[in-house]
Design a protein around this nucleic acid. Structure first.
Lengths: 256, 256
DNA sequence: TTAATAGTGTCTATGAGACAGTATCAA
DNA sequence: TTGATACTGTCTCATAGACACTATTAA
């Protein structure tokens, strides 16, 4: 944790060292499923030209506040709460991106997280440093030929990594259940899998697999209209996803 | 990338901002297989009491040097080269750990990587800030009942995460091939899988699986002693591992 | 009865695990 | 020939995929 010419200061308390420190930020890729597609929450950067990337859309996030954030995870939870009002969605560390070129203000490193939440009941709130907040369709944002404005910083790269990680984990985990409000039905869950994976999955094997994994608890029949009413389910454990013993398709997924 | 009370400075150049910045470091978990076990490279911290954790063993790493490191990945490669002399082993980002409590000098965040390399041909070199460098058996380091000294900082937690990530990816990737010097034989590769996984795997299905994945190129028969000589192989692409369509055992691995 | 969606059963293909058997070398 | 290790074949079992079939509601 220290070598080379960058010498650490003596073990004094508050004083900052003599060598320059990078900026430290946290950014969050917040996913939901809305309107038949995978969507991500973005905030619009302030329009003052003193700020980098004025008016462009970016992942929610910001500087770590050394005085109020005990660690990276709580910093991420704080920013999540500020933007969405949701206290405890599924939250996972994605990785980190750092370098001299990604922020015009100087060398910076961001710790990226990704979160999954149901769209229902989310109250979007602009923060102190965001002109606007909105959901965006991931497919449209990442369409290769799109002419529209790019995301701020290297956030498009981070978003791509988050989508890739989500897609690859969905092949063998119960992650999509965290995108739905409870109770949900198996057909709803299957549609969520299909939306994230971008391809249809077989109904019969899907149901067998979900029920065999033993992570769902029945909550009783859900009323519907003009057809056979489905069974409602909730997660037995909202704390962690379940891992399936095999992938969905017999072709190995991406991941890094 | 900015909100809340932690205000960013104006888009000036070098000057540092008014609010306190965390330290930014990079740490590397360097794995190899030696003497029939999985081992990790550790460095001993300097014994001067002005340094935190004097004399304790730690993962190699240190502060990001804003002047010479273009990004996190190149910072990691630099530290790797300094300790081992190896220029381009398999290197993957593991995650990041940050908080107020992990370094007595103040709020710090480290970007952790993990590397895989063959033990042969590695020249261990103490850095400017390391009293010694050595390989340690992972099993012994992480044995629950061990009395010996703990690792510095939160490096035991990082090491555990790295081992877990490695073990879970080994279930469905060709990662262990990066732990061997080329050319290697299929029995050698199988033994490497078994060392990392900590359990035996079936010879027949192992071979079928490796050859079906089409990532190995024959290099000719390797001479051995007193038995049938094995075929030697090398990786077709040293740039990236291959993903298998199914897990080894029908029980889902860990991962986070 | 029809339309619509929920849910089940049946067949096939694939590949892992177990394990027995064959191949090829030195001594 | 024996011993040792490399390599192959055969059998079984679990499960994904395809797809046809039954179930349950409203209109």
């Amino acid at each position: 944790m220290s070598n080379r010419k960058a010498r650490a200061p003596a073990a004094t308390r508050v004083p900052r060292p003599a060598f320059p420190l990078p900026y430290t930020t946290v950014d969050i890729v917040i996913f939901t499923v809305r309107g038949g597609g995978l969507e991500v929450l973005l905030v619009q950067r302030p329009t003052e030209t003193s700020e980098p990337f004025p008016g462009q859309w970016a992942l929610p996030g910001g500087f770590v506040n050394v005085d109020i954030d005990a660690d990276l995870q709580s910093c991420a939870r704080r920013k999540l709460r500020e933007k969405t009002g949701v206290a405890s969605p599924y939250l996972e560390q994605l990785g980190s991106w750092g370098g001299a070129a990604r922020d015009p203000r100087g060398w910076s490193a961001t710790h990226a997280f990704f979160a999954l939440m149901p769209a229902e009941g989310v109250e979007l709130a602009k923060g102190a440093n965001a002109a606007d907040v909105a959901w965006f369709k991931v497919d449209e944002l990442l369409a290769s030929g799109r002419k529209s404005q790019r995301l701020a910083f290297d956030h498009e790269e981070i978003l791509r990594a988050a989508v890739e990680r989500l897609r690859s984990k969905v092949e063998y985990t119960s992650l999509p259940a965290f995108l739905l409000p409870e109770p949900f039905t198996l057909p709803q869950l299957q549609r969520t899998y299909e939306v994230v994976l971008g391809r249809p999955v077989d109904k019969s094997s899907f149901r067998t697999r979900m029920l065999a994994a033993d992570f769902l608890a029945e909550t009783g029949i859900v009323e519907s209209s003009a057809n056979r009413p489905p069974m409602g389910y909730k997660l037995k454990d909202r704390g962690a996803p379940v891992f399936f013993p095999r992938m969905f398709s017999p072709r190995g997924g991406g991941e890094a």
